[in-house]
Amino acid sequence: MSAIHVTTTINNDATEFLCAPDETLLDVLRDRLGLTGSKEGCGSGDCGACSVMLDGRLVCACLVLGAEAEGRTVATIEGMAVGETLHPLQRKFLEHAALQCGICTPGFLIAAKALLERHPDPTEEEARYWLAGNLCRCTGYDKIIRAVLDAAAEMREAG
């Protein structure tokens, strides 16, 4: 099994790596590139803790092969804040205490960002269904949903 050389863009950085043919993008991010913000909760696409954007689409990095990243763009939680400035979603998660243990938080933030890019004014129900693939066991989702809707409102006002 020989390694595959992949050239890709991660969080706007040109990146190269070698990976095994059956190695997932999640393993590459975490084990080869040190981007451990994406978490593995299940490895089967059922928990959303490894959510990343692949060419602008929300995906589970555990269900993408590293080799598939060739020539594509990947965005992870590590690229969400700009310098010292948190994304409004990140800020609202803090303000609303939308995390307890925090393990699901990166995945929720990536998924919520994808939601607000497509639906800047989601209803509570739309937000709940969009985020149904992200499991949280601590919060009961209440404060997460409030944070997402509040961030959406702030982002709409900011235009």
Binding site: L63, V64, L115, G133
Partner: peptide, 9 residues
């Protein structure tokens, strides 16, 4: 089929 994430794939 699956979540928003799964729908992307």
């Amino acid at each position: 089929i699956g979540s928003t994430q799964i729908q992307g794939r």
